[in-house]
């Protein structure tokens, strides 16, 4: 399994798509999370109200973890799905699965190598995202003449763990779609459709009928749990709509990570490599 993981990591490291997605993630964060907000705040200096100070507080280093996580659960999820699909689905598009499979590694090891490399990539994404937020917030602090005060180590570790868990769960969701659909195009489309539209639609459609169903769905659906997890760490608008505790929500996300991984692995193991 380790040799498959090492090979997958080499493949991923040399793949331009990985770095493009990371650049998009970080670039959007810098522009929309800090540059545009800071410029907007600068234009409001004549009569600053409480909202402006609150926004400025969110740009400070003490808030960098929660600021970053808010975006990571939204746009990060979309990029994680795309990467998950690409890592697995491109093998079908390029027909390279047969090339690897005939070299001898067992299919479970191949699947584990792929999912392991995705998890590693999501860790890199999370670290890069948090580091970018730290750098941007430190720049804002120095521009405002404020001291650089960091959040506690516990919050940073929690943010890192939550960010990784959310991204990894969505990435394995993408991998599952790619294996099931044996390709990239449809899998990316359906993955994004679910994460960005369908879950919200489902919640909006069922909420008026039953509050109980709404609570159950919030407690069960991956997107709701991803949002709830980061809201438990202080991401606005908190508190989360989910009635579950932070630990339970994290467990649900971990469950999704395991479920999607097992699903992808099982289909990969059982299906013919056409």
């Amino acid at each position: 399994m380790w040799s498959a993981l090492r090979a997958e990591l080499l493949k991923l490291r040399k793949r331009p798509a990985l770095w493009v997605l990371l650049a998009v993630l970080v670039g959007v964060q810098v522009l929309f999370g800090y540059v545009f907000v800071y410029v907007f705040l600068g234009l409001e200096t004549e009569a600053p109200d409480v909202r402006v100070y609150q926004l400025l507080d969110r740009l400070m280093p003490q808030e960098f973890v929660t600021s970053a996580l808010g975006d990571l659960a939204g746009m990060g999820a979309a990029l994680a799905i795309i990467l998950g699909v690409l890592v697995v689905g491109s093998e079908y598009r390029w027909n390279t699965l047969k090339t690897i499979a005939t070299q001898g590694p067992p299919r479970p090891a191949l699947a584990a190598g792929k999912l392991g490399s995705l998890a590693a990539a999501m860790f890199v994404f999370t670290v890069a995202y948090l580091l970018t937020a730290l750098v941007c917030s430190s720049i804002v602090a120095s521009l405002e003449g404020e001291p650089v005060v960091l959040p506690s180590a516990g919050i940073i570790a929690g943010g890192l763990g939550a960010g990784w868990l959310v991204l990894s769960a969505w990435a394995t969701f993408g991998a599952l779609l790619a294996v099931a659909l044996r390709g990239t195009g449809l899998a990316i489309g359906l993955g994004l459709l679910y994460a960005l539209v369908l879950e919200e639609l489902l919640l909006a459609a069922l909420f008026p009928w039953s509050e109980t169903i709404d609570r159950v769905l919030h407690a069960v659906l991956p997107g709701s749990n991803a949002n709830a997890l980061v809201q438990h760490l202080g991401v606005p608008p908190g508190p989360p709509a989910s009635p579950l505790s932070a630990l339970t929500v994290a467990t649900v996300m971990l469950g999704y990570l395991v479920l999607f991984s097992l699903g992808a692995g099982l289909i990969f193991h059982r299906r013919d490599i056409a």
Binding site: S3, A7, L10, K14, P16, I100, Q103, G104, P105
Partner: peptide, 16 residues
């Protein structure tokens, strides 16, 4: 396609 011929073979060598 994004890897060289040598890197493709080295990749396969890692698998095996």
């Amino acid at each position: 396609p994004y890897l060289s011929g040598r890197d493709n073979l080295r990749l396969l060598a890692r698998y095996t």
